[in-house]
Design a protein around this nucleic acid. Sequence first.
DNA 1: CGAAAATAGTTGATGCGTCATCTATCGTTT
DNA 2: AAACGATAGATGACGCATCAACTATTTTCG
Lengths: 161, 161
Amino acid sequence: MTRSTSRLQQELQQSRPFRSIYQEAALSLLKTADLLRRSLSTRLEPHGITPQQYNVLRVLRGAGPEGIPTLAIGERLIEETPGLTRLLDRLETKGLALRRRCPQDRRQVLCFLTPEGGRLLDILQPSVDSLEQLFAEAISTPEAERLVQLLERIRERQHNQ
Amino acid sequence: MTRSTSRLQQELQQSRPFRSIYQEAALSLLKTADLLRRSLSTRLEPHGITPQQYNVLRVLRGAGPEGIPTLAIGERLIEETPGLTRLLDRLETKGLALRRRCPQDRRQVLCFLTPEGGRLLDILQPSVDSLEQLFAEAISTPEAERLVQLLERIRERQHNQ
DNA sequence: CGAAAATAGTTGATGCGTCATCTATCGTTT
DNA sequence: AAACGATAGATGACGCATCAACTATTTTCG
């Protein structure tokens, strides 16, 4: 399939067209997500935390005062990660999170958000919202819904392998 | 804005709906790209290379026998990366890439693909193609074109900040 | 020409992703 | 109760991302 020169091709400085629209879609997806991650990272950096740490803090807030076991955090993250122990180590060092062994099941370690962690999340909110705003400027509401739909179908396929 | 419970919400085990469709689109994008990266990684792993190394090998092949300066590789990658020196170190150790100081401009280091690197790329081709195939099963050609379009507009916005 | 600035790349430090392995605890089974 | 397997988490090792110096060349310009 031959296609006309697209913007992504120019960005990647490739001379040849993509072999297929699907290849282009895959690369475009990876590149857009990378840009988004980078944007978020830039906004969080002045506050000394990484996107992953930010996500964990949000999960901790969602868990509330009863806390949440370490591994349960992983299930709620956007990107799965096995390195939660060390990530929580750093959050605890910074005073943003707390851990306590669960008395009922001493294998589990319950994780909590500290008040300071909560304050940081509040401070971060506007920065993150402004990122979302970029999306709103780029595409319309129905287009966003369409995008979500397409991505969902792709994820579904991947899961089934 | 209130919205009905979507699939992504279930996946993330969140009780509350997204604050906006744009937030959902952003998270969906990150999650889908992560899954895609993971899939690629799984396919490459048996051959002992990472997605980033694979991308660099493809860029080296694209550069041909004249080679390409180290930093120029970075500009052609999907995800920008400053750690090219060490990545090339590993490729060179594995015998997949070669480096030589450029005689004309002795600041530059020209990078090449070795024949063994080329053979590895050929071997990897089917695995990567099959990933693309997943896309083809999930969405139609016009849908893929629409997806590429939407993603392009989002990237454009991000660039302009 | 000679000093300053720009360019190409390397290196060190820190955080994170990932895999395999290990310990501790719990549940179940006999 | 003792043994088995399952589960929760920690740890070590390695690769990669990122930022900040740092070196070595070239270019520019007074």
